[in-house]
Amino acid sequence: MISERMLNLTVIGGLLAVALAALVLDQPFTITLATRVAILSLAAVGLNIALGLGGLVSFGHAAFFGIGGYAMGILAYHAQTYTPLDLGLFTVAGTKSMPVIWLVAMVLSALAALLIGLLALRTSGVYFIMITLAFAQMFYYFTLSWSAYGGEDGLSIYIRNGFPGLNTLVPIQFFGICFVILCAALYLFHRLEHAPFGLALGSARQAPMRVETVGLSPMRLRLVAFVLSGAITGLAGALFADLNRFVSPTMFSWHMSGELIVLIILGGVARLIGPVIGAVLFVVLEHYLGGMTEFWKIWLGVILLLIVLFARGGVAGLLSPRKVGHD
């Protein structure tokens, strides 16, 4: 049993320490694994705003992850082929600049979250799950047949996009970018959770009637949460594509949506550090168990089952049970 603050610092510090140790020991692949953890964590921190704080079980967050990925892929593709990107009314040039790509990825995923949210948030429970899933699957099948950008083969980007002043091809530098963004997102999550918005959103999850009778609209609170959530997951998608230098429709697949939910449940729903713990477990299992057996997900399933049955608060809940109340 350790304090929540201690747990948060240990996990985040641990991730940084692993990457730095790998740098010293000249293990670039381990740095890549740590980067993968940071990016999956970021995607799940995004989902945790909707799922953890808002109680919105979105089974379609792959939509935003994929939109982020394709925003990166398409912009970089046009930059590397020196072809203009035709947007109907006008054309723009592609770009290899990460900040521009991130901005486009976040704006597009926020817009998609707004549209999906406007429709999906009219429902709740299993219908919400199904509608969000359906939207993500629409994107999946669309990109599967979108031959201009590789269709089911996906799109390779030969050189990682650039960030002013850094050499992103050096693994530790790209890790640094992802790590800083993850920390910023965690800080944002922390502020949101304790801000007036977080109180209203959490109350709308627990007692929507109450929120209405004090004059607030649960629907609007959820919509804003869903848009913020989508934008952060979209940013993670752009980084994920840059990590792999490859985008394909699998980023939109329902497996991806499911994995993000699994990460949060493993780590601890609505817990700040939950997504990071979940991502660490997931990547470690994927890498080490995956090296031993093709069927590693069976063991992931067993762990998930144990957590759901015996430790509802996830690993974060086991290590640092949530204290309630305040001073």
């Binding site: 949101l192 109180l199 959490g202 627990q206 004059g215 607030l216």
Partner: peptide, 28 residues
């Protein structure tokens, strides 16, 4: 809101009466 404190529940009411929920940064 069962998981929230007594004060947080009352402050939700005060927020509804005195302000709006679109504040994302300062702790409530």
């Amino acid at each position: 809101a069962m998981e929230n404190s007594v004060l947080q529940n009352a402050m939700l009411g005060a927020m509804g009466a005195l302000d709006h929920p679109w504040r994302f940064w300062r702790p409530v």
